Computed example of a mutant assay.
Amino acid sequence: MRIYISSNHQYPAKINGTASQHTTDLLAKGLAELGHDVFYDLRNNEIIEPLPDSVNQVTERMFDVDILQPQDIPPSRAFDSHGKPWVRTFQAPFGNHDISGLSKENLIFVSRSHAQSYGCDRYVYNSIDPAEFIYSETKDDYFIFLVCGLERAVLKGFGLALLLVQELGIKLVVAGSSKNQFYQRQFAAMCQEQGVEFVGEIRGPQKAQLIASAKALLAPTLINEPFGLVVPEALISGTPVICSHHGAFKEIVSSDVGFICHRQKDYIAAVERLDEISPQACREKAMRDFHYRTMAANYLKEYEKEISITASNNG
């Protein structure tokens, strides 16, 4: 299959891009590794590392392909596919965007519950690259809380994490950053007062090591997560997950790899039952369900559906 994918970010996104942009990079890589012709258009952005050997770099929109995936086009803008089949991954928060004016039948959501919140049923889970993480069955005596944007820490359940520190005396390591340096300094000071270790923004090997060595990931979010990439990042590292029941967590965290919690007492019980979770089971689930080649294979199924729908409509 000939597949055109476009995005508007510096390559690779894992260096300083967003999680959704990194997912697009992994999709291009996975599709090519599965034997398909992938044409990746970064819309004239800088490429600071070579693309994978099997991914073709292009610098303009292509239509002589089987399907297009224009990730550089905002969902609110119309897209002229010149009659070709096309889809777009949609990662916006739960039901918070009005998509009534969009071609929502072309949107692929990132979890079943995410799709349902918009009255749709088309989804493919996000993914990770195992090579970017470290698997460890040996854990240090700390829990990790990760947040993208410290301003969102409360919504991500930081208060519940602090309650566990106070109730159980656990060691908590928090990673995240803010563009507002004054806010970040205030947050760091608050962590110090609460006996919490704040490490700021982490990427690459530092992030991989911190996750792999943690006893568990704490993800007690108060909002509906469209997916929650921190979950597969922890699982691929052999690290169990203790999370809330909101959003996609309840469908991507199974009982063999973590605990889904509704109340404070559930979190306390989860901490006390961590020995029931096998790091190997965590790793196996992540390799099976969240590997980037699994994501690519699932996108291929959606591509085939879209090609068939377009052919039927044009027939």
Results as ranks from 00 to 15, higher is better:
243 C>Y: 06
268 I>M: 11
20 S>F: 12
65 V>M: 05
87 V>E: 05
233 E>R: 07
304 E>R: 15
261 C>K: 02
23 T>I: 15
182 F>T: 14
175 A>Y: 05
100 S>K: 14
296 A>P: 02
301 K>S: 12
103 S>G: 01
138 T>E: 15
234 A>F: 06
208 A>R: 11
233 E>T: 04
238 G>V: 04
308 S>L: 13
139 K>L: 04
121 D>T: 14
290 F>D: 08
187 F>I: 04
1 M>D: 02
210 L>F: 01
170 I>C: 06
275 D>L: 08
61 R>N: 00
11 Y>T: 05
68 L>R: 14
24 T>S: 03
91 Q>I: 10
199 V>M: 09
140 D>A: 13
252 I>V: 11
105 E>W: 02
178 S>Q: 07
312 S>L: 13
156 K>Q: 10
291 H>E: 03
117 S>Q: 08
41 D>I: 04
255 S>H: 14
296 A>C: 10
141 D>Y: 05
149 G>E: 05
239 T>D: 03
15 I>G: 00
202 I>C: 12
130 P>C: 11
214 A>P: 04
4 Y>F: 15
166 Q>P: 00
161 A>E: 09
242 I>R: 02
99 I>C: 07
197 E>M: 10
213 S>Y: 02
125 Y>V: 06
219 A>W: 01
32 A>R: 07
68 L>E: 13
143 F>D: 03
274 L>V: 05
192 Q>L: 12
266 D>W: 11
169 G>Y: 13
63 F>I: 01
97 H>V: 15
35 G>I: 13
31 L>I: 08
256 D>F: 04
298 N>I: 07
270 A>G: 09
107 L>M: 14
99 I>S: 02
288 R>A: 10
266 D>C: 10
58 V>K: 07
308 S>T: 14
68 L>N: 06
128 I>C: 02
162 L>D: 00
95 G>Y: 09
36 H>G: 03
161 A>N: 06
104 K>T: 02
15 I>Q: 08
39 F>C: 06
237 S>A: 13
230 V>C: 09
266 D>F: 11
62 M>D: 00
47 I>N: 02
61 R>A: 08
203 R>L: 09
36 H>W: 10
285 K>I: 12
14 K>D: 01
195 G>L: 10
291 H>K: 08
11 Y>Q: 02
116 Q>M: 06
221 T>E: 08
296 A>E: 08
162 L>M: 11
26 L>Y: 13
215 K>P: 00
